[in-house]
Each structure stands twice: as structure tokens, then as C-alpha cells.
């Protein structure tokens, strides 16, 4: 079940999106997230989704790969959607049965919220799928360098993030393995109430943490052995350089943001 997560995985391909400067992509993602929350109408959301669709096409990452990432959070989406659907008060009651009431506002906010979440997840995974963690790190490091003035350890934070991203697939695979092993010892993760289920996670979580700490320890040693010594005096294998395509992308991003604000004001 965890194998389907795509967030944090890199999909190697040769596309314009892959070649973009990570700073451009990070900025684009930020604007994208902001616009998702600016727009609060279903048609506006569909426009954003269409824009996202176009970006995915350019990225050359198979669409099915993106959708797979959603599968892991379907339950979460459904719960959130249902809460919105039934618990939002509104003027017009569309449906009423026992304690369940659906209002027009509820329907709208549930639809909006679901699309918003899906678009948000896919949108951010487009960035991680087309950007290697290392260049993502570089992007964050350069983009946020001004923060070092305030003594924020930007290099360290970005290095930690990129390593976390690299180990997500490994830890997911490991979770899968541990789950199977405990199932082979008769563990049951499906039945029982919430408390029972939470308790049944202990045999998965403890070994997972133990292994994560061991890996962290090994990795730290391996990094030290390769002369890692923090950000000072480091050079870059792939230094960031803006190209023409980045300028075009920035223009696109601002046009997109402008459209969203216009849609918000006009619709």
C-alpha cells in the first residue's frame, strides 16, 4: 500500500520542466499553492487543474504516475470531504436523512476542498518528480540564502531535507517488509477498533525507528568519510544558472497568478 506514494520520488526524464532551475520551480510551486487558496470557486479550480494538466504534459512524467500518488491519501480525502459535505451549514438544504444534512454550501465546499487537495498534492509532486533532491536542496539553499543573516542554518536544513527525501522510498519499502514479516507472525492490522489498531502499529513502528536510526548513523559516518564538513568551502557540481527558459517560466507564473487574482475578483 505504501509503494504507491509518489511524493518525494524523482522521475528521471528529459523535459523542459526537468531542466528548469530549481529556484524557478520552487517559486512556481509557492505561487501555485497560494493561488489554490486564493481561488474559491469551482470553475476557477477547474482552470487551475487544467493549467496543472498542461504542466504535467510538459513534464513527460506519465499521468498514471501522478494519480498513483493520490491513492495513498484517498481515505483521508474522503473523510475530509464527508465532513465538509455534511457539517457545513448553508441556506438551501439539498438532502436530509436523519442526522445527515447536505446543504448547497456543504456541497460546494466539499467539492472545492477535494479538488483543492488533489491539485495541491499533484502540484507539489510535479515539482519533486522533476527535480532531483540535490538540486532541490541547491534551490532552497540559494533561494533562502538571505536567511543566513538571521543565523538560520540554511545549508544544513536543505541537506537534511534532501537526505530525508532520498530515504523516503527506502523507508517505505522497509515498512512494507516489516509489515509482511509481522503478518507472517500472525499480526492483524485490519480488524479491531481504533485503539486496537494503534496498538497493532507498535510492532511496525519500533523496528522502523530502530532501522531509521541505524541508517542515519551509517549515513553520517559515510558522509564524514567523504569529507563532509558542513556548507563552508563546498563547491557545486551543478551550480545554478538561470537560462532563457527560466525567464519565460517566471513570466508564465506571474501571468498565472494574475489570472487567478482576476478570477477571484471577477467571478
Amino acid at each position: 500500500m505504501f509503494r504507491n506514494m509518489t511524493l518525494g520520488q524523482y522521475y528521471p526524464a528529459d523535459s523542459i520542466l526537468h531542466r528548469l532551475d530549481p529556484r524557478t520551480k520552487l517559486f512556481g510551486t509557492l505561487i501555485f499553492i497560494i493561488s489554490i487558496f486564493i481561488v474559491d470557486s469551482v470553475p476557477g479550480m477547474l482552470v487551475i487543474a487544467a493549467f496543472l494538466g498542461a504542466v504535467i504534459l510538459i513534464s513527460k512524467v506519465p499521468f498514471s504516475f501522478m494519480v498513483k500518488g493520490i491513492r495513498g491519501i484517498v481515505v483521508l480525502l474522503m473523510i475530509a470531504g464527508l465532513f465538509n459535505l455534511f457539517l457545513t451549514p448553508g441556506d438551501k438544504i439539498l438532502f436530509h436523512f436523519g442526522i445527515l444534512t447536505i446543504t448547497d454550501a456543504g456541497l460546494k465546499s466539499a467539492t472545492l476542498m477535494t479538488i483543492r487537495m488533489i491539485v495541491l498534492i499533484i502540484g507539489t509532486s510535479v515539482m519533486t518528480l522533476t527535480t532531483t533532491p540535490n538540486s532541490l536542496t541547491d534551490g532552497l539553499e540559494k533561494g533562502l540564502r538571505f536567511l543566513t543573516v538571521f543565523r538560520v542554518p540554511v545549508h544544513e536544513i536543505s541537506m537534511m531535507m534532501s537526505i530525508a527525501l532520498r530515504f523516503i522510498p527506502i523507508l517505505i519499502e522497509e515498512t512494507d517488509k516489516i509489515m509482511k514479516a509481522q503478518m507472517a507472525r500472525g499480526a492483524d492490522f485490519e480488524s479491531g477498533g481504533i485503539f486496537q489498531k494503534a496498538k497493532s502499529m507498535v510492532p511496525i513502528l519500533v523496528p522502523l525507528f530502530v532501522s531509521a536510526f541505524r541508517r542515519a548513523n551509517d549515513l553520517a559516518l559515510a558522509m564524514e568519510a567523504r569529507c563532509y564538513n558542513g556548507g563552508d568551502g563546498r563547491t557545486n557540481m551543478k551550480p545554478l544558472k538561470y537560462a532563457g527558459i527560466d525567464a519565460i517560466s517566471y513570466v508564465c507564473i506571474f501571468v498565472f497568478l494574475g489570472t487567478c487574482i482576476a478570477a477571484k475578483v471577477l467571478l
Binding site: E174, A181, Q182, V206, P207, S211
Partner: peptide, 10 residues
């Protein structure tokens, strides 16, 4: 018994 079974001890 899985490969590296000691990794499931909890």
C-alpha cells in the same frame, strides 16, 4: 523467517 529477520524485533 524473512531476510535479515532481526530487523523486525520490537
Amino acid at each position: 523467517v524473512f531476510q535479515y529477520p532481526e530487523n523486525q524485533l520490537f
